[in-house]
């Protein structure tokens, strides 16, 4: 498995980028050249310089430092959203797919209800109900997204549980634990990895969108979407301010999408080199 991973250039490259970005985010206090919250009104809209490599924004804060600190909420919250979504989705999906019968009916009807709402409206509804905060954005995202995963995982489990190797395990009386964790889960991980890495891009955009609309991460906290929102306000006077967060979001989301594709190739045992 690891050998095939290292042979796949895209997988290695994209994973490396994501890891480096995450590391920069973790080491933000060490790396950032300036304090992201320090305002300097006199020096606002400064161009690119040694002191402010990406210039300053409308309040004279260092854009690069804000970008670096912004990795934490952007990437961290997206990862948290995905962990929550996949966790809930996997448990319910496997239950529905493996046990069938009444359990499946109940779970799938709830899923149907969840899927019948447009996702953005649901997010707004949840945020409006619980109040504007980061925590609620995560809850809202998990709340609308788990149903997709539950359905996907159920389909995967159903597809594999009639395969002969599972039938054999049932027939000779292997414990259910073994069937679930050694046969079914690994079989669906490749689909899951693809979907998860595609959707982490979705989560980043979604959190950024909400921040952009002023519903997510709140004002002084640096977050890429929120920074884009601030840049929008000064679109005419300082158009270059939106380049950094905009490019960063596009690049990171792109990276996750490519990683999804590459991971599918890596996790598929039949992929021949």
């Amino acid at each position: 498995m690891s050998k095939r991973f290292f042979q796949n250039k895209t997988a290695v490259f994209t994973t490396l980028i994501v890891l480096v970005v995450a590391l920069i985010g973790i080491l933000a206090p060490v790396i950032a050249p300036n304090d992201p919250y320090e305002t300097n009104i006199i020096n606002k809209f400064a161009g690119y310089s040694m002191e402010y490599p990406l210039g300053t924004d409308q309040l004279g804060r260092c854009v690069l430092s804000r970008m670096i600190y912004g990795i934490r909420p952007t990437l961290g919250l997206a990862a948290l959203t995905m962990v929550g979504t996949i966790g809930i989705g996997a448990v319910l999906g496997i239950m529905a797919g493996y046990f069938r019968g009444i359990v499946e009916e109940v779970i799938m009807r709830i899923v149907d209800v969840m899927l019948s709402f447009p996702s953005q409206i649901m997010v707004f509804a949840v945020v409006a109900l619980l109040g504007v905060s980061v925590q609620n954005v995560i809850i809202a995202n998990v709340f609308i997204k788990w149903a997709w995963y539950a359905r996907m995982i159920r389909t995967g489990v159903m597809q594999y549980r009639d395969k002969n190797f599972v039938q054999f395990s049932c027939c000779v009386g292997m414990p259910e634990r073994f069937i679930l964790f050694r046969h079914l889960l690994p079989s669906i991980t490749s689909d899951l990895a693809v979907l998860a890495s595609l959707d982490i891009g979705w989560a980043i955009i979604n959190i950024s969108t909400l921040s952009f609309l002023g519903l997510g991460v709140q004002a002084p906290t640096p977050e890429w979407g929120a920074m884009l929102n601030e840049a929008k306000e000064v679109l005419t006077s300082n158009p270059t301010q939106m380049i950094a967060p905009g490019v960063a979001i596009v690049a990171l989301v792109c990276c996750f999408n490519l990683m999804g594709d590459a991971l599918r190739d890596v996790l598929d045992p039949k992929e021949v080199k």
Binding site: N164, Q167, F168, M174, P186, P269
Partner: peptide, 28 residues
């Protein structure tokens, strides 16, 4: 009782090596 299936393409988990496939039987 043990069983051998018709369709050998799905009889074995494609993620298992032959070693792991046999190990499942040995476990039983």
């Amino acid at each position: 009782l043990s069983i051998v299936f018709q369709d050998y393409t799905t009889s074995a988990n494609p993620r298992f090596r032959v070693r792991d496939i046999l190990r499942e039987g040995l476990y039983v």
